[in-house]
Design a protein around this nucleic acid. Structure first.
Lengths: 210, 210
DNA sequence: GTCTATATAGGGATAGAC
DNA sequence: GTCTATCCCTATATAGAC
């Protein structure tokens, strides 16, 4: 019996660490995150992960039952962050203003987690497949909820487009620049993006769209 | 000898078509675009593409020498669009205002090409590998130029972040909503995104950042 | 906890008939 | 221009020794 069998049940701590990694498990996750981001999930083999850590392929299977379980563990690192915030929105209609303040609250965490955010953005296909396979998870997926809000017919089209644009703006500021903003402090980058988002969700009254 | 040998030399017309596809070659590209978007490049096999078209795997190899050549052909569909516009920026420093008007010009085309834009966003890893392999192309890559502009030290950090955010906003408005905006006309969606971008690049004078 | 095999499957690509 | 059949490689995952 391997550790991987119990891995799904109790994740323990280690979720928030970034440099982390005294444990082999965390080091596997860190390396996998980098490789999945650069080469994609399908473009990365267990052999590559093992080689970079100077361990064997089978050693990884001691910690994770499958390659997909590695991806799932990485997904959970991010998912837990937005979970609480998104729960607040359950049931109620999300206005543009509410959206802005939610984004405002989440921004610091998004800046901190931008590496894993990038991994998500670049592995949408693999992550969707994961969600289709494991439909035993009761987690209302974040993206799904997000799209529900954007489809809400009680909001004006203008506001819904603004909501989508504002999230895109955050992603753009964090991820689109490549390494151009790597030397910028998280606080400063967060502050600048915050200002930009504010301009997008500030209601200068809807002009014509309904 | 197969057609695939000549495919790299002369692409012919067919680049701008969207529903297109009387020719087998175009139908292959259309199907591949959808599958690459949904399942990822690596997650899609030649067998799947062939099956959906009710032709054989080998039939595809008559039109394309490799799977990567299909991806490259799709890449070119989008690349040609931004090429001309980006050429204007060569050499000169790109201000936030110039960035805004460039984006403004490109927006209609981006709306029209949003399907292929989404395919690009979701297959970054495969596309980068493509560019690493084929370094015989003289095309200054779009993303590369874009990141150069964002790294330009003669611009304030604030403006550079705004530039990244504004592009992200366009992507967000076009792609992040899933199918929520599918029923919206291109003209209206474009107009709403345009307004959002204007708010981001409008200079209300830089506050403190340098 | 980590190793060396190995089973098994699937993918990309080619050959050659029609 | 499309087919069938096949080659070859790499990947995931497992078995079992240490």
């Amino acid at each position: 019996m391997t550790r991987a069998d119990a891995a799904l049940a109790g994740p323990g701590a280690s979720a928030g660490d970034d440099q982390a990694g005294t444990s082999t498990r965390d080091r596997i996750l860190d390396v996998a995150m980098d490789l999945f981001t650069d080469q994609g999930f399908d473009g990365t083999s267990m052999r590559e992960i093992a080689e970079r850590l100077h361990i064997s392929k089978a050693a990884i299977y001691y910690h994770f039952a499958s390659k997909e379980e590695i991806l799932m563990a990485l997904h959970m690192r991010l998912h837990d962050v937005g979970k609480a915030a998104l729960a607040r929105l359950a049931g109620q209609t999300v206005t543009l203003q509410a959206w802005g303040s939610l984004l405002n609250e989440l921004l610091d965490q998004m800046v901190a987690q931008r590496k894993i955010l990038l991994m998500h953005e670049r592995n949408q296909a693999a992550l969707e497949k994961l969600h289709r396979t494991d439909h035993d998870d009761d987690h209302g997926d974040i993206q799904q909820r997000f799209r529900q809000a954007l489809a809400n017919p009680s909001l004006s089209l203008r506001d819904r487009v603004r909501m989508a644009c504002s999230v895109g703006a955050v992603f753009g500021g964090l991820l689109l620049a490549g390494d151009a903003f790597d030397n910028v402090s998280s606080a400063e980058l967060g502050s600048l993006i915050r200002d930009a988002v504010r301009d997008l969700v500030a209601d200068s009254s809807a002009p014509d769209a309904g």
